[in-house]
Computed example of a mutant assay.
Amino acid sequence: MANRPPENWRAWMAEVARDVEAGISGPECAGAVEMYPESLLRATDSALETFEAEMRGLVEPSDEEVFGAVERVVLALNAVDDANHGGVGYCTEEREQLCEYIDLTLGEHGVDVVALAVRKDIDRAEITDAWRDW
């Protein structure tokens, strides 16, 4: 199973904290923990957990069912990004990780993402674009 992006973000913050403590990185890097407030991490995890559960419940899903699940997770992530997390939201790196996670999760649940995109006449990277604000 693919790592949820918040797992990667938590690991990165822990690594930066260790590097600062060890003197490998300067004290100016200590503020890195503010990039991912716990409220953002928890809300993102919750949205992705719901998406995973929905995908587990689909058996031989139609394209409409798959796109419905994608729409719901993207709208949930839009809400997370719009919420107040101390002025922090998803930036380019986070967006890329979230899109990749959605793609990988679809694949892990038997969806041929390339074929799905072809049937919808879109590029694979555009699976989330119809709903994504982040």
Results as ranks from 00 to 15, higher is better:
residue 89 G to P: 02
residue 115 A to G: 10
residue 68 G to K: 13
residue 102 I to K: 06
residue 115 A to S: 11
residue 123 D to A: 13
residue 73 V to R: 04
residue 75 L to I: 00
residue 71 E to M: 05
residue 76 A to Y: 04
residue 119 R to C: 10
residue 130 A to M: 07
residue 107 G to V: 01
residue 125 A to E: 15
residue 78 N to M: 02
residue 114 V to K: 13
residue 68 G to Y: 05
residue 89 G to L: 02
residue 63 D to E: 14
residue 82 D to C: 00
residue 92 T to R: 08
residue 107 G to A: 05
residue 67 F to I: 07
residue 79 A to P: 01
residue 102 I to V: 15
residue 86 G to Y: 04
residue 94 E to K: 13
residue 127 I to M: 12
residue 70 V to F: 05
residue 92 T to H: 13
residue 89 G to K: 06
residue 66 V to F: 08
residue 86 G to N: 05
residue 99 C to T: 02
residue 66 V to G: 10
residue 93 E to F: 04
residue 78 N to L: 00
residue 113 V to F: 10
residue 109 H to A: 01
residue 127 I to S: 08
residue 120 K to C: 05
residue 74 V to K: 00
residue 116 L to Q: 08
residue 78 N to V: 01
residue 131 W to Q: 01
residue 81 D to F: 06
residue 68 G to T: 10
residue 97 Q to V: 00
residue 119 R to H: 11
residue 88 V to M: 10
residue 64 E to N: 11
residue 114 V to Y: 08
residue 69 A to V: 04
residue 113 V to S: 13
residue 111 V to C: 03
residue 75 L to C: 00
residue 106 L to Q: 10
residue 81 D to P: 08
residue 72 R to T: 01
residue 76 A to K: 05
residue 113 V to T: 15
residue 100 E to C: 10
residue 124 R to W: 05
residue 127 I to E: 09
residue 102 I to M: 03
residue 118 V to F: 14
residue 90 Y to D: 07
residue 118 V to P: 03
residue 109 H to K: 07
residue 119 R to F: 12
residue 64 E to G: 06
residue 99 C to Y: 07
residue 71 E to C: 07
residue 83 A to R: 10
residue 75 L to G: 00
residue 111 V to T: 11
residue 126 E to M: 09
residue 90 Y to P: 06
residue 81 D to H: 13
residue 74 V to L: 06
residue 127 I to L: 15
residue 83 A to N: 10
residue 91 C to D: 15
residue 70 V to Q: 11
residue 84 N to E: 12
residue 121 D to F: 01
residue 83 A to Q: 04
residue 103 D to E: 11
residue 80 V to P: 03
residue 66 V to P: 15
residue 131 W to T: 02
residue 63 D to A: 15
residue 126 E to Q: 12
residue 114 V to E: 15
residue 68 G to W: 03
residue 80 V to K: 09
